[in-house]
Structure formats: structure tokens, C-alpha cells
Design a protein around this nucleic acid. Structure first.
Lengths: 205, 205
DNA sequence: CCAAAAGTAGACCGACTTGTCTACACGCAA
DNA sequence: TTGCGTGTAGACAAGTCGGTCTACTTTTGG
């Protein structure tokens, strides 16, 4: 494997599991079996390595989520697939994402409070990308075609619930099973869908 | 002021604004104008100081939230007051809580991934206390009297939304204005209230 | 085939970390 | 007065941090 990629993968795993400040360069070197000079040949500093890890994680997570939502055609299906996927991740059944330890971007942002720091900017960008993904998915449904305002609002709500679910699972070690309840989910989604289309959504899903 | 309290207040502000690992003992000493021996006379280690800060923050936050919810008599009022209060906090208008920098407990938990670490346990305990506070409040309403199962579920949902709202505000620098919308909020709350009581809730709030 | 590039191993630097310890000052109570 | 508790000021220990550098080896491409 590419040395650079190997270093990123090793560093990402360590950073995600233990936190950025808790993992030193030397630990990454030992774990990856790479010389210090090699690392600093690929990355000018630890910060740059962190940024590369964030980009790699962003790519991996978005790909995973996009894949999980690819067969969803209604808002309800999207919401259901979203929370189902999160639950799978939390239960350590999403091997692509590694052992669950909360959201890497929320965790990392907590360690870099300055909002104009490159690392904080990448964390923010990831969240915006996920929100955009949800919005795009919802916009493609027949229920939300040319109702982008409503799609935007539901995407925002799903996003907030997603973040909350991940944080709760990380801190309290208990996920919100409620969001797996089809009845509640249907009611949540329903409130955003224009009246004439609600039945259509019901019959399909 | 009590030396010990003074140290805790100084440390708490620094830890909350910059993150735990980013703040050294010496910085706290300089800021508080206290000698190193004095600090180590009150706290055996940095970890113990961190724990004292978490306890102080837990007390302060719970008191603040409890105060903000004290005049709420219906589930809708509780939800409305909750998200309104969070919005005030995020907009830096809750002086008791200091400059908003996300949830101190989520941030801190991100820096201490081992779930059996005393610090992580305190973070988890805080979240459980807040959830309990919401549950108690909801249980006291006429709509949820002796419907503790439903109250539990709504408390759980509100908690998830709260965590999500705080995380989004922290990472994306944009709060979810949606949760301030009375219409949406009413629909959210409504789905948990047993049918015969819904109108009662509506007429009161 | 040979030079350039990219790798390894690890000593080393200065700055920083938590935590200990000495030396000294002040206030209070017996 | 004496002695104790609590405070200050800061040197110091022992270790870690990110990052640089030397010396040497391996890989690779023209």
C-alpha cells in the first residue's frame, strides 16, 4: 500500500479512538512501522496529517452514508435508513467506519475551539456536506420535488437528530431506540410533507 | 472568595473555552494568581481538578435549566422553553453559562474516550441528570400524569434534539432555528400525548 | 548501471508537561 | 511567644511533545 495512505489510516484509527492530543507522532510511527523522516516527508506537520485524516474520514463516511441511502425513494425511507444506519454504526456493525467512538469531526472540533483554524473548518465542512447530502436525497423524492424549502427543513431536522443520536451514544453509551420506531418516524416526516402528497408517501412506504 | 472555588472557576473557564488538554496547570496558576503548592494542596492532581470543574459545571447548568423550565405546565411549554433557552445560550445571552462553546461534557468526553475513566463517568452522569430533569418536568404535567412511558419517550426525543442542536451550533456555527417554530414543536410534542388530552394541551398552551 | 529518490533508525533539540520540594511570609490561636 | 496552617514564589525532576538532522540502506527509473 501507498506509504502516505498507510500513515493516514494508522493515524486516523488512533486519532479517532483516543483523541488527537492524546496521540503523539511517535505513537503513530511505532504503530505504522514507518520512520519519522518518512512521515515528515509526506506531511509538513502534525496538523497537516490531522487534516489529511479528516479528509479521508469525510470521504469514507459520506461514501458509506450515500451507499446506505441509495435505494430510498421517499422521505420516510430516507429517515428510516438514516437512523437504521446510525444504529448499525453505533452497534459496531459498520466495519467500514471502525469501532464506534462518536463522530470524529465533533470530537476533533472539541479539541480545536478556534473556528478559523483549518482543522475546525474541515470539521464544519464535513457537517455541511452531510446536510447537503440529506437535502439532495430528499429533494429527489416525488414528495419534495420543487418543494426545496420543506426539504431543507426536514434535512435540518434529520441532521439535528443524527448529531444528537451520535452524541448520546458516545457520552451516555445508550442510543436513542426511539428513532427506530416507524410510527414516530412517520409522524416526524409527515409534518413536512404537503398535505396532498402524504397519502402517496404512506402507500409507498 | 474561597481559594478552592476561585481555582475551580478559573480552571473551568479555561477548560471550557480551550479544551482540557490544551490548558496546562501553569496557565491556570498564572490566570488565577495562585501558587502551585496551593493548587496541589486542594487537588491531588489535574484530573481531580477536572472532576471538580465538571461537578461545578453540572451544578450550574442544571440550576440554570431548572430555572428556565420552572414555570412550564404543559409538554409544549417545556419543549418550547427548552429550545428557547438553548438558543439564548448559543447566542451568548446566558451569562451564567459563559461564552458558548458547545457542551462542556461532550467536549470533555471527546478528550477522555475510556468510558470507565472517572471523568468520562461524570460526563455521562451529567447527561443522565439532564434527561431525568426533563422526564420529571414532563411527568408533572397533567398530560403525562401516570403516563410515565410516554413521558420517558418524549424526554428522550427532546434530549436528542438538545444534544444535536448544541453540537450543530458548536461545529457548524449555526443553530437549528427550526426548533423555535411553534407549529413544528407542537406537532412533535403532540405525537406523544394520548389522544383525549391533546386538545387540553392545545387550549392551555 | 548508476544516480536520484525514498526509505529506515534513532540521536538530538528546545519547549512544554505534571507534579515535588525548598525557602520564606503572614495570620491566628494557645 | 511559639507553633501551626495556609499561603507565595519558583527551582527542579522526569518525562513527553513536535520536529530536525545525520548516517545509512533500499528502491526505482532513465
Amino acid at each position: 500500500m501507498d506509504k502516505r495512505t498507510h500513515i493516514i489510516n494508522t493515524a486516523l484509527t488512533a486519532f479517532y479512538q483516543k483523541g488527537i492530543h492524546a496521540v503523539g507522532i511517535n505513537e503513530i510511527l511505532k504503530e505504522s512501522g514507518v520512520a519519522k523522516k518518512t512521515l515528515y516527508n509526506h506531511f509538513v506537520s502534525k496538523d497537516e496529517l490531522i487534516c489529511a485524516c479528516l479528509e479521508a474520514r469525510d470521504k469514507r463516511f459520506n461514501h458509506w452514508l450515500n451507499d446506505r441511502l441509495k435505494n430510498c425513494d421517499t422521505p420516510f425511507e430516507i429517515a428510516s435508513a438514516l437512523f437504521g444506519s446510525l444504529s448499525i454504526w453505533i452497534d459496531n456493525k459498520a466495519i467500514e467506519l471502525g469501532d464506534f467512538n462518536g463522530c470524529f469531526f465533533i470530537n476533533t472540533a472539541a479539541e480545536f475551539p478556534h473556528s478559523d483554524h483549518p482543522i475546525a473548518i474541515l470539521c464544519s465542512a464535513h457537517k455541511k456536506a452531510v446536510l447537503q447530502l440529506l437535502f439532495d436525497k430528499l429533494s429527489q423524492t416525488t414528495q419534495f420535488k420543487s418543494k426545496s424549502e420543506k426539504a431543507k427543513q426536514l434535512a435540518q431536522l434529520l441532521m439535528t437528530l443524527k448529531e444528537g443520536m451520535i452524541c448520546q451514544a458516545r457520552v451516555m453509551h445508550s442510543s436513542n431506540q426511539l428513532l427506530q420506531d416507524p410510527l414516530l418516524l412517520r409522524q416526524l416526516v409527515q409534518s413536512y410533507i404537503p398535505k396532498p402528497l402524504q397519502d402517496a408517501d404512506f402507500s409507498v412506504s
